[in-house]
Write a protein that binds this DNA or RNA. Structure first.
Lengths: 331, 331
DNA sequence: CTTTTTTTTCGAAAGGATAAAATATAAGTA
DNA sequence: TACTTATATTTTATCCTTTCGAAAAAAAAG
């Protein structure tokens, strides 16, 4: 049926091993032989079977990518960074959505192992003990991207969320709002905790006792942001500045405010987080914390290649630089 | 090193075949034996090797997905639909970005074949003769998603782009603009041609001679939209209505207009295409053609499963219904 | 208690490559 | 020319399952 390496070997009058060497670009092949084999391959339309190769070599040149939701603009940007570097190093990615569902996450990790991926990139909010257990006993290298496990035992690539949140909040305080509102995702993740910590730190530094009414737990979506804006307006004497844990939420917040006749930034300032493409797609354009999503994905994948090649890695927990991008939603 | 089916067989005092049957849920196993094997599997921590299985069974339960750019909100939504249905049918997806680069596309198709995917979902703008050739001689089923090959010989899932564009344009005409502007992507794809055809049809029906100055070729991005808005404003006596070939472009157009003091929809109406999440994330909210991206992906994947199961398929070229969502960017 | 039928289980052959050891050929040196 | 050394090539084993025909065991029938 299908043309195999054996067919090529027979037709070219060489052994399978020689064909294999030609296919894999091994230099130990006499030019004349190489040419002969190449011709035969061409003539028969031979296409190497990566599955057979994977079984024999124990390498699939495939890495698993577990992602909360690829249709989310934040994660899709990360995924793009991952895939570009994967391609650069000749890997393909098996991508699966977890919806941050613990069962599904654990199952997916196992599926990836079954599929014999050479490495795994994992993204997710809550890293439970079971997660750590399963990832630490992995048969292949693992790297977390934009994901924190509190034990810090698994290689990862992130920014300094606490510091970033601290800076963002501080800007609002400096601009004159004593106690800004924090609109956060209600997900119970280490990343969120750190953002909160940074927010709290800035308040403390300004000698503000933290008021939990000013911490609004919202969903992940734009609509939750609109909703959150309403909640903010219901606060009596509500603060004139809002720090949002994501850009999408921030957009919702801005529109929620505008829909109720408030002006941004004149009446209320808003600062976002992530610097997704969305941040330039609003009016006013969104001031935000630049989290280099693409780079996080790319660096995580690069890190993974190092592990897969058994290169030595100096620092397993990479912190990428962030910055604050001031646009027009803040003064 | 690794626990294999052979180890399990030995420890459980059965043959490999029996273990295999247990693992695959084959009913022809005595309950007592099943239990014994299951215990051994548990005890040894056996995990089936999907690569070996793939080689032996010639099925990898993996499908290839070639996508222009996963970080694009339109495609990531499609991808999500694909993955959800794939998961439902126990497939995993190998996802690769093509950037609509012909070389890369052709190379990726080949890579997918090498990896022995059980099927392939392809998305891309320009389907050349070579593409058709390579896809038609595929060793596995193929389905196009939101992608048209003019020969219509490859199974596909789309909406009726011409009709949709016709309807969108007609609305603008009915609202009082004799000859709306069409801001389109400059990519030379069959989908774009059909959108143009629909636009032209609506004009013709309104007895308007088509003015090519009113057809503006832009890039794919938001920024191109902003740019396009400027071009529109430079047209003397420019039309008061714009039909944009995508939502992202439309957002750019709206903001480009607003940044120059024009009001939407009072001064200029804008209608988009796709109904991505973006369409509700602008002010005014965007009237647009609803293209069910998620469903297109899902249906394409479903179609593919039918082919992979060798089920008979009534219609290979599926046309999903579209609709017009009127929001606030039109009167 | 045979014989027949049905249900379980086994053994061995694929499946298509790679990898390590062994052999053959070519080139270099004394 | 004979002997090393280096370069090419072949041989054989292995990777881990599934699959299928055959054997064994169990259940049903006579």
């Amino acid at each position: 049926m299908n043309v195999t390496i054996y067919d090529v070997a027979r037709e070219a009058n060489v052994s399978m091993a020689t064909v294999s060497r030609v296919v894999n670009g091994n230099p130990n092949v006499k030019p004349a032989t190489r040419k002969k084999v190449l011709n035969t391959i061409e003539r028969l339309g031979y296409r190497p079977n990566a599955v057979a190769r994977g079984l024999a070599s124990k390498k699939t040149t495939t890495v698993g990518v577990i992602i909360p939701d690829i249709s989310n603009i934040f994660f899709s940007e990360l995924a793009r960074g991952i895939d570009d570097i994967a391609t650069m190093y000749k890997y393909n990615i098996i991508l699966s959505n977890s919806d941050q569902n613990k069962e599904k996450e654990l199952r997916l990790i196992n599926t990836m192992y079954e599929k014999q991926v050479d490495g795994l990139i994992y993204m997710g909010a809550e890293i439970s003990e079971e997660h750590v257990q399963q990832l630490k006993t992995s048969p292949v290298p693992v790297a977390l991207a934009a994901t924190i496990d509190s034990s810090e035992t698994i290689p990862s690539v992130n920014i300094d969320y606490e510091q970033a949140a601290y800076e963002a909040t501080s800007i609002l305080i400096e601009n004159g709002t004593k106690h800004p509102v924090f609109v956060t995702e209600e997900t119970n993740s280490a990343v969120n905790e750190r953002k909160y910590a940074g927010y709290a730190k800035a308040l403390k530094e300004a000698n503000q006792e933290i008021n939990e009414d000013f911490v609004i737990k919202a969903g992940l979506s734009y609509e939750s942001g609109v909703e959150a804006a309403k909640q903010v307006m219901e606060l009596k004497d509500f603060p004139k500045a809002i720090f949002s844990a994501s850009d999408e939420l921030a957009l919702g917040v801005i529109h929620g405010l505008q829909d109720n006749g408030l002006r941004v930034p004149e009446d209320v300032e808003v600062i976002g987080f992530d610097n997704t493409k969305l941040s330039t797609m609003v009016r006013p354009t969104l001031s935000t914390v630049v989290q280099p999503m693409y780079d996080i994905g790319a660096v995580a994948m690069r890190l993974l290649t190092k592990f897969m090649n058994k290169e030595t890695v100096e620092e397993q927990n990479v912190i990428l630089p962030h910055q604050i991008m001031k646009r027009n939603s803040t003064k």
